[in-house]
Amino acid sequence: MWPKSFDYIRVNSVEEAITQLNKHEDAKLLAGGHSLLPAMKLRLAEPALLVDIAPLGLTQVSDRGHGWSIGAMATHAHIAANANGALAQAAAGIGDQQVRNFGTIGGNIAHADPASDPPAVLVALGAKIYIRGSGGERNVAAEDFFIDLFTTDLLSDEIITSIYIPRKEGHTNAYAKMAHPASRYALVGVAVDICTQEGHCREVRIGVTGATTHAVRASGAEAVLQGAEINDGNIAQACEAIQADIADQLLGDAAYPEDYRQAMAGVFLGRAIRAATA
């Protein structure tokens, strides 16, 4: 399959990328291309210009002490090997070896596929997305970044430069995923970041992907767990609550309908909580 014809340029700086995005209304940034090119081959995307940002680097995963900074062009393979916890876990389960070698986290979240893994984790970890555009630099919380199916807060002349994940002392996290048997995309993915003290939950954030049109926070399930003892009864209650949390944003298909994914969100929340608190 061939994509529709387009123009191609390679840029050497973030400023240059922004200038090109500004100049051409129908331009798209090309990082790893592992979401964009398949979409272009299916003619689901037909940009007139591809701006290849490969020369920008932006691939570092660095420990800043108070948190982690992940370059927007860090590949999933690099993150799987150099980050930890739920983020590394999610990265290691994306697609397959070949896809993880070239797919980037910035491209992944800009594409905002509803079945993508990292968005749920970024929401749970309280990540901030750093963005630059003609209007300067800004950052947005992951939970506000994902807006709808393939839709984010990113403007047409903006580029994601990095993702910041705050270090939270005493917190542990995990990602539990029900992978589609062929594509390995998440039918349901639940990320939990939790801080417990003497068996009780002091703080928790939950992110969901796959079952919903976009990655969302499950605040009802969080409220059930907040302050509660981590036991089978309370976990079961949270698993009920998450199904209500996502009821208005469900996504489904013939093989895995909405109500099935909704039920599975409960099951996989339970697994994520147990993995994070094990």
């Binding site: 191609y8 090309l30 291309g33 070896q97 070949q98 896809v99 070239f102």
Partner: peptide, 19 residues
């Protein structure tokens, strides 16, 4: 379509020649 690009496994149907 797997090949190696700079020693790393790649699905060559998912990359442009210009890349």
């Amino acid at each position: 379509c797997t090949v190696h690009l700079d020693g790393v496994a790649l699905k060559s149907c998912t990359m442009l020649a210009v890349q």
